[in-house]
């Protein structure tokens, strides 16, 4: 039997695979770049923030404490963790580390009052960056993403156009990540391309790696020292 093949939910949108700028625009002219990071590990982690044993177990496995401040994300070694709600976190890891993470997470939390649900096949991540990225989001979101209001480290569940999303501010005002449910991805992608077009939109090649900030190591060290 051949090796199983994975397909991104954007399979019907060839731009995302081939990396062509939309409609003949060159990358230099574009005010927005759009891309997909397919096949990442997406895990929903459920538990209680006041459960100290759970928090300690999480810190051990992630090397960083779960964010308890609403609407913030943190970054550990090879992992991004976003606060989704009082009892829920979204854990993002690179595609090739997905299975190891899932195993080690389930092992680490086996005795805890917690649950890990694998959502890797049910979601994908869309990147949106550039001078006009914020304008594109403003067309379908009532969030105020001005750098003054939403700094790097901000994340939220929200809606964009008519789709539920998880939004992460990677770089204030400039770089955003949108996690969307698989079945809405095709709609949301078309919406984003349409909303971006007036600014010139570059479509980046699909990239199955996790976006980590350059300063991740420092944060990681501090977190370990702190815990």
């Amino acid at each position: 039997m051949s090796e199983p093949v994975m397909e991104s939910p954007l399979i019907g949108r060839p731009h995302s695979i081939q990396g062509q700028p939309a409609d003949g625009q060159s990358a230099a002219q574009s005010g927005v770049s759009l891309g997909e990071r397919p096949f990442l590990g997406h895990f929903s982690l459920r538990g209680k923030a006041d459960d100290e044993a759970l928090m300690a177990a999480c810190s051990r496995v992630f090397g960083i404490a779960l964010p308890k401040t609403p609407n913030t994300w943190v970054e550990g070694e090879g992992v991004v963790i976003g606060w989704m709600g009082p009892t829920e976190w979204l854990v993002l890891v690179a595609a090739e580390t997905r299975h190891e993470w899932l195993i080690s997470l389930r092992e680490a939390l086996a005795d805890q009052h917690a649950g890990v649900v694998d959502l890797s096949g049910g979601q994908t991540l869309i990147t949106l960056a550039g001078e006009h990225a914020r304008d594109v989001l403003a067309k379908g979101s009532t969030l105020d993403l001005h750098p003054r209001e939403a700094q790097a480290g901000f994340c939220t569940r929200s809606t964009l156009a008519k789709s539920a999303i998880f939004l992460r501010v990677v770089e204030a005002g400039e770089r955003f990540e949108i996690v969307v449910r698989r079945s809405f991805a095709d709609y949301l992608w078309q919406w984003l391309v349409d909303a971006s077009e007036e600014y010139g939109c570059e479509i980046l090649p699909a990239d199955a790696t996790l976006a980590l900030s350059a300063s991740a190591d420092n944060d990681f060290d501090e977190a370990v020292n702190a815990s």
Binding site: P9, G12, A161, S183, F184, D186, Y187, Q190, W191, D194
Partner: peptide
């Protein structure tokens, strides 16, 4: 086509 999301399954294509 953007009036309402068209949700698609993994086998849609």
């Amino acid at each position: 086509h953007l009036f309402d999301p068209e949700r698609k399954t993994a086998m849609h294509e």
